[in-house]
Amino acid sequence: MNIPRFWRKINNRYNLMGTKCENCGQTYFPPRNICPNCRREGEIVEHSFEDEIGELITYTIIRSAAEDHEKETPYILGIIELEENTRLTSQIVNCEIEDVEIGMKLKPVFRKLGEQSKDGLLFYGVKFSPIGKEE
C-alpha cells in the first residue's frame, strides 16, 4: 500500500469511520460517497462504528496466506455485521481456531495490520476480538 493511500484512510481504519445516508438510514463501511439506494436524494454524512459490538456472520481459516501475512497463519478471517446490515471483513484475534463460532459477539480492537517492508511504514487499524467475560 502506498503512503498517501494509507494516510487518506487513517480515520476510517483507526476509528471505524464509515458513512450514513440520512435519507434512508443505511450505514456503510468502507465509507461510500453516495447512497446506492437513494442516489441524489440521499445525504451522506460521517458515521462512527467504533463503539459497536459486531456479530460474526461467517468465517474462514487462512492457512496459506499472501506473502505479507504468511508468518501469521493459521488465522481467522471473518465477515462481521455491525448495525443496519453493514458488513465488513476483518481478522478475528484473541480467539483460538477451535473457539470461533458463527454468531459470536465481537468488539473492535486496535492492531497492526501489516507493514510496507521491514524498513517501511507500519499500518495500523481495527481488527475484531471476542468480547471478554466482564464486558
Binding site: E72, V93, N94, F110, L113, L122, Y124
Partner: peptide, 16 residues
C-alpha cells in the same frame, strides 16, 4: 504480545 501487537497498539488500547 500477540503477533500484531506492539507499543503503539497497547498505548491506544490503554488510552481508549
Amino acid at each position: 504480545p500477540g503477533q500484531d501487537e506492539d507499543t503503539a497498539t497497547i498505548a491506544v488500547e490503554a488510552a481508549r
